[in-house]
Nucleic acid binder design. Structure first.
Lengths: 114, 114
DNA sequence: TCAAGGAGTTACCAAATGGTGACGACCGCA
DNA sequence: TGCGGTCGTCACCATTTGGTAACTCCTTGA
């Protein structure tokens, strides 16, 4: 992100943070959860995630696309274009990570008393 | 976080996001990485993480403490109080998660060409 | 020619997060 | 009684992120 000279002395840099950045975003984990079952199109995701706006959903899907995690594909249905989003093969490598993270988060939540 | 009535229809809520929130923060993953080896005191962490400010470091350590992941302990060394931070037993349950996340992030980074 | 459905984008605003620099509290010691 | 070391907070600002509402583009069918 920064092009100026940077020492990067081994601790400036954290692989786990790279991973987090790829999936952090208020809706990304939920999108990725939805796509586990089957591909979804834009409006479908929008409906299934109450509260998300078109703008933000578009942003997050775009970021997931840039990171190579999901792939959008056009599809004509009755004269209307649907954008179908699905995992890439690479994106699926994230599933076990999300599973473990989700399992831990689930326990954590229970622990905090919610 | 919100006490007003909320439908929470199974998809509003994402365990993975809970997990992310616990470790997200520009320095948290790096702090947790440092503490894997051995406990560290405040100034030590501050020195080892170039760029972090006292305020933010204090904030992040405090959040990690509230979440029960690390525990601060006072220690006198030559008439000066040192605050020693270390994992709690519960906090250690996060290590495998960070490992997996870090491994994925490492590969991701390589894939993106950085 | 115009409505309708789907997928975005744009401009504007609000909240959360992180950074800066100054400051205070504490303790032992010369 | 002032000094240096450690930890932490405070007020203030900058950046990032998410939300709202209006708008465009595209295609088919009445």
């Amino acid at each position: 992100m920064v092009t100026t000279a940077k020492p990067d002395p081994k601790l400036t840099h954290c692989p786990a943070l790279v991973g987090i950045k790829a999936i952090s975003g208020k809706w990304k984990t939920r999108i990725l959860w939805l796509l586990r079952d089957r591909p979804h199109h834009f409006g479908e995701i929008r409906t299934l995630l109450p509260g998300v706006s078109a703008k933000v959903l578009s942003q997050q899907l775009s970021q997931l696309g840039k990171d190579g995690l999901v792939l959008p594909q056009e599809e004509m249905r009755g004269g209307v274009v649907f954008m179908i989003y699905d995992y890439t093969d690479y994106g699926r490598t994230l599933v076990p990570v999300l599973d473990l993270l989700g399992a831990w988060g689930d326990g954590h939540e229970r622990r905090q008393g919610l």
